[in-house]
Nucleic acid binder design. Structure first.
Ligand SMILES: [Mg+2]
Length: 242
DNA sequence: GCGACAG
DNA sequence: ATCTTGTCGC
């Protein structure tokens, strides 16, 4: 039997109004005005380090699913590359049969959030921001997985997807670090970002309590030698291991 | 009606 | 996402 999406669509439209797009800051600094009034993301300022970066992913293998959360401590320096140190990891296992929704493009959050919330209950630390395997506001109704999770947990979140859900964009140079706006319905909702030279790009969009510049900066600071930022890569591996 | 379509 | 080994290319 087909899933009735009309109720879900109404909920998404209501949630969309609650999403806040602003520079990424720590909870205590939220709402304060930039002392320098500059457009430089606060996370790039060494003075604001360290940051606790969480990443989440869900893996389904046969009759078992695993919701994984990893937490890294990010330190930004003025005279050397940023450092990432693994702080904590948790995995919540459950029966695949307990997953209430099938996968339908545009409604991924309803399928993945319940298991992810279970995993968050096992987490003892409180991250400053959550990286999600999926879109943020780059969504037909502006509420992708990252946005929905951020709103639910009342925490900053960033969407980092391996594929596009919606929107259009122009030619993207092959060099690592290049990016172009991702436009949907006349609005720039994120960017298509080249994390590795000559490699398929990733799709970055703000989830909640962050903006596009801060989202790009966060992902860049978390990149290692792979296409996917290290925390998300680790969460993905963890959610698929034994 | 047709094409697009996160994980 | 999952099902799956070796193989092609930089
Ligand atoms: Mg995933």
């Amino acid at each position: 039997m087909r899933l009735r999406t009309d109720v879900l669509i109404r909920l998404q439209k209501k949630l969309a109004k609650k999403i806040l797009i602003c520079p990424l800051t720590k909870e205590g600094e939220r709402g304060k005005i930039n002392s320098t009034s500059s457009s430089v993301p606060p996370i790039l300022n060494p003075k604001n380090s360290p940051w606790l970066i969480a990443a989440t992913d869900l893996g389904i293998k046969g009759d078992t699913f695993k919701a994984a959360i990893v937490v890294y401590e990010l330190k930004v320096f003025s005279d050397r590359p940023p450092s990432l140190e693994l702080i904590d990891e948790v995995v919540y296992r459950g029966n695949t049969s307990s997953i209430r929704f099938p996968y339908i493009p545009g409604f991924l959050s309803f399928r993945e959030i319940p298991p992810l919330l279970k995993a968050f209950k096992k987490l003892s630390v409180s991250p400053d921001v959550i990286l999600c395997d999926g879109q943020g506001i780059a969504h037909p109704r502006g509420v992708g997985l990252a946005s929905h999770l951020g709103l639910t947990l009342r925490k900053p979140s960033v969407g980092c997807a391996k594929n596009k859900l919606c929107g259009n964009y122009g030619l993207l140079p092959p060099q690592k670090g290049s990016w172009v706006p991702l436009v949907y319905d006349g609005l720039t909702v994120g960017v298509v970002y080249r994390s590795r030279t000559g490699v398929k790009p990733i799709y970055i969009s703000p989830g909640h309590l962050t903006d596009i510049p801060s989202s790009i900066a966060l992902v860049e600071l978390c990149l290692g030698r792979f296409r996917i930022p290290e925390p998300l890569r680790r969460a993905h591996i963890l959610s698929n291991s034994l």
